[in-house]
Deep mutational scan, measured.
Amino acid sequence: TTYKLIANGKTLKGETTTEAVDAETAERVFKEYAKKNGVDGEWTYDDATKTFTVTE
C-alpha cells in the first residue's frame, strides 16, 4: 500500500511517499524521515486517503 506524507515544517515543506504493509509501518518510516530532516511537529493521519501530515 502506498502512504503519503505531507510535511509542513519550518525547514522542510513538501510531499513524499512510501510503500508499507500497514499504516503503523508507514508512520515509523515517516517519523524517521522527519527526524532526519529536523521536522518535529503535530502529526495527523487520514485513513481514507492514506495520508500523514506533520505540521510545525
Rank of each mutant, 00 (worst) to 15 (best):
D22S: 07
W43N: 00
D40N: 12
T11V: 11
K36Y: 08
Y3F: 11
T25M: 12
V29R: 09
T53C: 07
T53S: 06
T25V: 08
T11N: 13
K13V: 12
D47R: 07
F30N: 00
A23V: 13
T51E: 04
A23C: 13
T2H: 08
T44Y: 09
T17E: 08
D46I: 04
T49N: 07
E27Q: 10
E27S: 08
Y45Q: 00
T18L: 14
T51D: 01
T1Q: 12
A26D: 00
E56K: 05
L12K: 07
E42H: 12
T17K: 08
N8V: 14
V29M: 10
R28A: 12
N8S: 10
T51V: 06
A7M: 15
V21N: 11
T16R: 09
K10I: 14
V29S: 07
D22V: 02
T1L: 10
D40I: 14
E42K: 11
E19D: 09
E19M: 14
E24C: 13
V21I: 13
E56A: 09
T2K: 12
N37D: 03
D46M: 04
A26I: 02
G14Y: 15
V21W: 13
W43E: 00
A20W: 02
D47H: 09
W43I: 03
T55G: 05
T2N: 06
T11Y: 14
E27W: 14
T51S: 05
T51I: 06
L5K: 01
E15T: 13
A23Y: 14
V29I: 15
K50V: 03
L5P: 02
Y33R: 03
K50E: 03
W43F: 04
T51N: 02
F52K: 00
E56P: 07
K35A: 13
T17Q: 09
K13L: 12
V39C: 10
E56T: 07
A48M: 11
F52T: 01
T1C: 13
W43R: 00
N37C: 14
A23K: 15
D47S: 11
K36D: 09
T51Q: 04
I6H: 05
A48H: 10
N8K: 12
V39T: 04
A20L: 02
N8M: 14
L12H: 14
D40T: 14
G41K: 01
K50I: 01
E24S: 11
Y33F: 12
Y45T: 00
G41H: 02
R28Y: 06
E32G: 05
V39I: 15
K4Y: 15
E56Q: 10
K4G: 03
E56R: 04
R28M: 10
F52D: 00
